Amino acid sequence: MRIEVLIDVKTQLGEGPLWDVEDQRLYWIDSIGKKVFRCTVDGRELRAWEVPDIIGSMAIRKKGGAVLSLARGFHFMDFDSGEVELIHDPEPGMQNNRLNDGKVDRHGRFVVGSMDIGEAGKNASIYRLDPDLKVHKLDDGIIVSNGPCWSPSGETFYFADSWAGELWAYDYDLSAGAVSNRRVFATLDNSDGGIADGSTVDAEGYVWNAQVFDGKLVRYAPDGTVDRIVQMPVRRITSLMFGGPNLDILYVTSMSLLLQPHLPKDPIARGSLFAIHDLGIKGLPEFRFGG
């Protein structure tokens, strides 16, 4: 295994690495810095776009461009012009909330959770944006939404409320895009201060979670037991995604914000984009938004 700093971009809150298999490009965001980034598999051809608000997540569209979850709603983004257009705000008037992490299911629906900005109240929900641009609420009573992803069959949806200390699993109705039967998939070992952030599922059906503040990437077996732990050289890692031509490079985002000032400063490359090689594991291709 080899861990490298792919690009030392020093994002304030790097998040949401996304490998697009059609374009063979890696995308990621700076949530607080209000930017979208793109590069090649090896970090070349770096491009950045500014967006008008805090950004929680993004997905590539089948029709071109991207769909974004900005603080105040779902938006389309045109890569050529840089223009951003509001689709729908599912939480009008809820100024203590913002949209956060999201991914696309195998039917092209963008599933995004919101979060309480103060990370205290259970004010947040999970929403589904369909290709016809209608929005549906899937669950609520959440503090900070993170880590949405699906099993290889698409029939199990994984999700985390970061401060709950747990990863959850739901039954996912592929035809309806509905969730049911929420249960605890795994309980985090937070003895080193780690909490659940971004997640992905590999080709073997194992769930990977980035535990922010303790720098651990934890691989969970389908039964929820810990299979493997990768210790990163920085503590403030945020999310992860397999990419590259063979989907065998694990990309990891990090942040430079000192949200936990009592922690020691990371010795290198806070906010950088990392690439992990030679894990012997492949990921799954991400789907594009159908609208």
Rank of each mutant, 00 (worst) to 15 (best):
L273W: 05
R228I: 05
G141Y: 04
R44L: 11
A203W: 10
L6F: 00
L46C: 02
I54Q: 15
V112L: 06
A48E: 13
V51A: 02
G102D: 09
F289I: 07
G290C: 05
P261C: 04
A71L: 07
P52A: 00
M58K: 11
E4C: 06
V36P: 01
L70Q: 03
A59W: 07
S69A: 12
G33V: 09
E166G: 03
V184M: 08
D140K: 06
R288E: 03
V36S: 01
R270Y: 08
K103T: 10
V201C: 15
S199T: 15
F110L: 00
R44F: 13
V5H: 00
D140P: 08
R219W: 03
L133N: 15
D139V: 10
G244Y: 05
V84F: 00
P233Y: 03
N97F: 04
W208N: 04
G121Q: 15
W19Q: 07
G290W: 10
A221Q: 11
R2G: 09
T225M: 10
I268S: 10
I276P: 05
Y27L: 05
K216W: 06
D20I: 12
P92S: 01
Q211T: 07
E50F: 09
G154N: 04
I54S: 11
V5D: 00
R128W: 11
F110N: 01
I60V: 15
S153I: 14
I126Q: 11
A66T: 10
D42K: 04
Y172K: 05
G16W: 13
I229K: 10
F76Q: 10
C39G: 04
G205A: 05
M115S: 11
L174Y: 08
W208L: 03
I126C: 09
L138K: 03
V67T: 08
F185N: 00
V111Q: 14
I276M: 11
V201T: 13
